[in-house]
C-alpha cells in the first residue's frame, strides 16, 4: 500500500525526491504517513481534500482484500 501512495505522490509534486512514506501495522489497522515538501502539501491534499480522499479510496480497495483498515496521514 505504501508503494501506491509513494507512486501517486511522486507523480503529483514538484519535488519528488522529498517524498517519504511510512507504513505502520497495528493489529488489523495500517497507518500510512506521507511526507512531502511543504510547498507540495497542497498538491497531495487538494481542494477540499479531494486528492487525499481519492488516494484513500484506492487504498481501501487493497486494504479490504487483506481484511484491514487503512488510514492515510499527510504531514
Amino acid at each position: 500500500m505504501k508503494e501506491l501512495v509513494e507512486y501517486i505522490a511522486r507523480s503529483l509534486v514538484q519535488e519528488p525526491e522529498q517524498v517519504r512514506v511510512q507504513e505502520k501495522q497495528s493489529g488489523r489497522s495500517v497507518t500510512i504517513t506521507l511526507h512531502v515538501a511543504s510547498d507540495d502539501i497542497g498538491r497531495v491534499i487538494g481542494k477540499n481534500g479531494r486528492v487525499a480522499n481519492a488516494i484513500r479510496t484506492l487504498l481501501k480497495v487493497q486494504a479490504s482484500k487483506e481484511g484491514k483498515r487503512v488510514f492515510l496521514e499527510i504531514e
Partner: peptide
C-alpha cells in the same frame, strides 16, 4: 468490480488521479 466500487466511487477516484497526473506532467 473492486475498481468500480459503490456507485462508481472507486472508478471516480482512479479517473480523478489519472487526470491530475496527466495535467501535472
Amino acid at each position: 468490480g473492486v475498481l468500480i466500487g459503490r456507485r462508481g466511487e472507486t472508478l471516480g477516484a482512479l479517473q480523478f488521479l489519472v487526470r491530475l497526473i496527466v495535467n501535472h506532467r
